[in-house]
């Protein structure tokens, strides 16, 4: 089955409201439900991305702040096609919300 790289991107005008403990618990439960629903599709839960630097020749000025600011995290899902991968990503609580979007890219290995 094809694999897809999902990258979370923050968009301008994000939600600045800090979730309360009760809301965090709710998010945790939703995440759990989502994980169970798409168990088959979740290949690698990935993680958060920290600061990075673009390596080029000749060396460019860095660090590339926008990389850190724009991409929050990644994960890898397997799906029949792009649409299914998008469905999985869209269902993930906290991934797609106001001020945040997810970019889904097919990983071609052949």
């Amino acid at each position: 089955m094809p694999k897809y790289l999902c990258m979370q991107r923050s968009l301008p005008g994000g939600d600045t409201h800090k979730p309360s403990p009760a809301e965090m618990q709710e998010m945790y439960s939703q995440f759990r439900a989502w994980q169970q629903k798409f168990q088959e599709n979740l290949v690698d839960m990935g993680g958060k991305l920290g600061a990075g630097r673009l390596v080029t020749e000749p060396a460019a000025d860095g660090p590339f702040v926008e990389v850190k600011e724009l991409v929050g995290g990644y994960m890898i899902v397997s799906a029949q096609n792009l649409d299914e991968a998008i469905t999985v990503a869209r269902g993930c609580p906290g991934l797609v919300r106001r001020g945040s979007g997810v970019e889904v890219i097919e990983i071609r290995t052949s």
Partner: peptide
């Protein structure tokens, strides 16, 4: 993989 459930009000209780 699946994350285990946390007890009810876990986050609120832990906060306090």
């Amino acid at each position: 993989m699946s994350t285990p459930q946390l007890v009810e009000h876990f986050f609120r209780r832990e906060y306090g």
